[in-house]
C-alpha cells in the first residue's frame, strides 16, 4: 500500500503542510528570482542546503550562461485623444526607447494576417498594438513572443500587446519575446486588457490615438546553475525518473506559483521517499531548471550536456502550469507508454486524479527533452485561474493552498515512485 502510505504521511502525517511551509519560507526570503540575478544564485544555494538538511547529499550543479535582463524605467502616457496613464510591463529582453521616449500614433491589429495585409506605409513610424482576445495560452502567446519582429518588419517604431490573460484588474502580464537578427529591434511591452480594449474602442471609432512610450533596461549575460538531486535506485541506479520545476521567475511578483509550486513538489518527492525509507529500483532525479523564463535556457543546456546518456531517462516529469488540485497527467509517449501511465493513474481515482491527457509536447522545460523521443508528462491540475496570475505582481503565496500542495506533493511522489519501481521500463 505504498500509494496510501505516501498520501497518509503527506496529507495527515508529519509532512502535512510541509510543502506549503517550505515554499512560503523560500518565497518570503528571496522573492522574485530573475535569470542572471544574485538572488537566484542565493536561492539555488538555499535549495541545496535544505536538501542536505534532509540527509540527501547526492547533489550536483551544472553551470551555464544565462541572460540577465534588468527592467528599469517604464512609462506609457496616452496623449490623444485624452491624457491617460497606461499600465505597462516591458517584455523580456526588450530594447530601450530613446531618453525622450517614442511618441507616435497607434495602429491596432487583432492578428498577424491583418498586419500582413496592411501596406507598409500605413504602419511605418507607428506603434503597433496587437490585441488578440485570449482563447488559449498556446494560441495567443505568439503575439507576445513574435509581435515585435512582425511589427518591425513593417516599419513600426514600437510594439505593444494586450496581456496574454483571460482576466484582469488592470494588471499587465510580462513574458518572453524573441528578436530576429534580420529586422530592427524595437521596444516592446504588454499593456492591460482594459487599456488595450480602450485603445481599440477609440481606434474603431476612427479617433487618433497617440502614445508616448519610455522604457529603459539593461542586458548582459551571467553564469547560473541547473541543480540535480539524485535519490539513487537500488537495482538500476543508472535509470532515471526525473521530476522537475524551474527555480527562476520573472522580476514581477514572487514566483510562488510560477514555478515555486512545481519546484517544491519536485523537491519534496525524494525528501518524502527518504523519510519513509522507500527506495525504488530506479533513481529519482529532481532537477531545478534555471533560466526557464527567458527561453528554457537551463533545459537546453541539460539536454545537450546529457545527450549521450539520454537512453537512461525512463520518464521525465515537470510541473510548470500550477500546483492546484491534481487531476492527472498530461502525457507524451507511445501507446504502450500511455497505457502504463493510465494504469498507474487508476490508483488515484479516489482523489479524482486519474485523468490522462494526451499531448505531443507537455510541459515547458521538459518539452526540450520530450521532443527527442523520451516519454514524459506534466501535472494536469485544476489550474483554470493560472493565467489570471501568470507573470504578474499577483504571483504570490496568496495563490497557493496548503491542502492542494499536499495533494500535489503526494501525487507527484507516488507517481514517480511507482514509475521508478515497476518491473517494466516505460517504452519509447
Amino acid at each position: 500500500d505504498v500509494k496510501e502510505e505516501i498520501f497518509r504521511y503527506v496529507t495527515e502525517g508529519d509532512f502535512k503542510s510541509k510543502t506549503y511551509d517550505e515554499l512560503a519560507k523560500f518565497v518570503d526570503k528571496f522573492g522574485a528570482r530573475p535569470s542572471g540575478s544574485q538572488v537566484l544564485e542565493d536561492s539555488i544555494d538555499y535549495m541545496i542546503q535544505i536538501t542536505k538538511d534532509e540527509d540527501i547529499n547526492d547533489i550536483v550543479t551544472e553551470e551555464l550562461e544565462v541572460p540577465h535582463w534588468i527592467r528599469e524605467q517604464e512609462k506609457i502616457t496616452m496623449l490623444e485623444p485624452r491624457s491617460k496613464h497606461i499600465a505597462v510591463l516591458g517584455l523580456g529582453k526588450s530594447v530601450s526607447t530613446p531618453p525622450e521616449g517614442i511618441t507616435a500614433e497607434v495602429i491596432v491589429f487583432s492578428n498577424f494576417d491583418q498586419l500582413a495585409e496592411t501596406p507598409r506605409q500605413d504602419i511605418d513610424g507607428k506603434i503597433v498594438l496587437f490585441d488578440p482576445i485570449f482563447t488559449t495560452y498556446a494560441e495567443t502567446v505568439v503575439y507576445r513572443s513574435q509581435g515585435a519582429v512582425k511589427a518591425a518588419e513593417k516599419g513600426a517604431t514600437a510594439s505593444l500587446v494586450r496581456s496574454i490573460a483571460p482576466f484582469s484588474i488592470n494588471t499587465p502580464h510580462t513574458g518572453s519575446q524573441y528578436y530576429s537578427d534580420s529586422v530592427p529591434k524595437i521596444p516592446t511591452a504588454a499593456i492591460t486588457l482594459e487599456d488595450a480594449d480602450l485603445i481599440r474602442r477609440f481606434y474603431d471609432r476612427g479617433e487618433k490615438v497617440v502614445l508616448n512610450i519610455k522604457m529603459t533596461s539593461s542586458y548582459e549575460t551571467k553564469i547560473s546553475r541547473n541543480t540535480i538531486i539524485d535519490y539513487k535506485g537500488i537495482e538500476n541506479p543508472e535509470k532515471l525518473v526525473i521530476v522537475s520545476g524551474h527555480i527562476d521567475s520573472w522580476d514581477v511578483g514572487q514566483g510562488a506559483m510560477d514555478d515555486g509550486g512545481g519546484l517544491f513538489i519536485s523537491w519534496a518527492a525524494p525528501v518524502i521517499l527518504k523519510r519513509l525509507n522507500l527506495r525504488p529500483k530506479r533513481t529519482i532525479r529532481s532537477i531545478f531548471w534555471t533560466a526557464e523564463e527567458l527561453g528554457l535556457i537551463g533545459a537546453y543546456d541539460y539536454e545537450e550536456r546529457h545527450r549521450n546518456e539520454s537512453n537512461n531517462i525512463n520518464f521525465i516529469m515537470e510541473s510548470d502550469e500550477g500546483t492546484f488540485s491534481p487531476l492527472g497527467l498530461v502525457v507524451a509517449g507511445n501507446e504502450e507508454a500511455r497505457c502504463i501511465i493510465a494504469e498507474i493513474l487508476k490508483l488515484f481515482e479516489s482523489i479524482n486524479a486519474s485523468t490522462l491527457v494526451e499531448s505531443d509536447s507537455p510541459g515547458s522545460d521538459i518539452a526540450v527533452i520530450v521532443k527527442t523521443g523520451i516519454p514524459g508528462a506534466s501535472l494536469h491540475n485544476a489550474n483554470e485561474k493560472y493565467f489570471w496570475f501568470h507573470h504578474t505582481e499577483g504571483d504570490t503565496m496568496n495563490v497557493e493552498s496548503p491542502e492542494e500542495l499536499d495533494l500535489c506533493a503526494a501525487f507527484w511522489t507516488a507517481v514517480s515512485y511507482i514509475i521508478a519501481d515497476i518491473s517494466s521500463d516505460i517504452p519509447r
Partner: peptide, 26 residues
C-alpha cells in the same frame, strides 16, 4: 490537448502481470 477518450488497446498491450503489479501499489 485532448483527454484520452479510450485506450482500447491497453488490455492487449499490457500483460496481466504488469497490470496486477501496478495495482499492487494501491
Amino acid at each position: 490537448k485532448s483527454v484520452a477518450k479510450s485506450l482500447n488497446k491497453c488490455q492487449t498491450l499490457l500483460s496481466d502481470d504488469l497490470i496486477n503489479e501496478i495495482a499492487s501499489y494501491k
